[in-house]
């Protein structure tokens, strides 16, 4: 029986080809990994990050904004209160930069707590590929109070907003646009009262570009500025 014996040259060639194959494969995978890791999320040098400040404490924020609209809607159901808002403040209009470098004038609002009582739909409207829905069966709250009793403030930057608030004589009958001077009046009234009032509202429509809620003392016990009991997070 004969056994094939390759020449020394053939053996050397086989080893060289194997080493070359290994190097090429490693380089291909390494290049791909570094290419995906190298891209900055907000343009070269992260230059497209927004430069924002919170109303309370002037906390500096540098978010990289997605430019996706998150719509919070609570339709009217008679004159029944469907949300509560405490210490609402309108800081004014600000030019805000998005991740792609484009800008938009947004209204900046702040509140100590915003509590949905029922009927809220929270859903993105222009995300790529599919929309994100946050669906509480009833209640949801943003902000509130920490264990220490200190308020946990929430700031939002919105492109549009309309409220129906139980206010003075107009009750929930008249929608108040975010640009309405009446909202500025509410802001002044809130600032003047030490324990700012909680307002009840019947309906709201808010196009949110960015929301930040900040608890200075996060704890496993849970100060939780965002509370979504019995809630489904889904994609559709």
């Amino acid at each position: 029986m004969s056994t094939y014996q390759p020449s020394r040259r053939m053996q050397s060639l086989t080893v060289i080809v194997a080493v070359l194959l290994f190097v090429v494969t490693w380089l291909a995978l390494a290049t791909q990994t570094s290419a995906s890791a190298a891209s900055a999320p907000c343009g070269p040098g992260d230059a497209n990050r927004a430069a924002l400040k919170t109303v309370h404490g002037e906390r500096a924020l540098r978010p990289c904004l997605s430019k996706v609209n998150l719509k919070l809607s609570i339709p009217q159901d008679g004159l029944r209160s469907r949300f509560n808002v405490k210490e609402i403040r309108r800081a004014g209009q600000e030019t805000v930069k998005f991740a792609d470098g484009s800008t938009e004038k947004l209204w900046h609002l702040s509140f100590a707590s915003f509590k949905v009582l029922d009927g809220a739909t929270i859903r993105t409207t222009d995300n790529n590929d599919a929309q994100v829905s946050i669906t509480p069966d009833k209640e949801a709250s943003f902000g509130g109070a920490a264990d220490s009793g200190k308020p946990i403030y929430t700031d939002v930057w919105v492109s549009a907003a309309t409220f129906r608030i139980n206010l003075l004589l107009i009750g929930c009958l008249v929608p108040i646009d975010v640009s309405n001077p009446l909202l500025a009046l509410v802001t002044v009234a809130n600032s003047a009262i030490p324990n700012a009032i909680t307002l009840g509202g019947c309906a709201i429509d808010m196009d949110i570009r960015y929301l930040v809620s900040y608890s200075d003392d996060p704890s496993s016990a849970g100060n939780y500025p965002v509370r979504l009991p019995n809630t489904t997070l889904s994609l559709s």
Binding site: P63, I208, V212, L228, P229, L233, S234
Partner: peptide
Amino acid sequence: TSIKGDGNPGLNLDGVVEIGVSGDS
């Protein structure tokens, strides 16, 4: 594609919570 948190807390977020930032950031 969907996730549901029943009861209270359900889904709670703490610390600095940011909504609307870009996914890759």
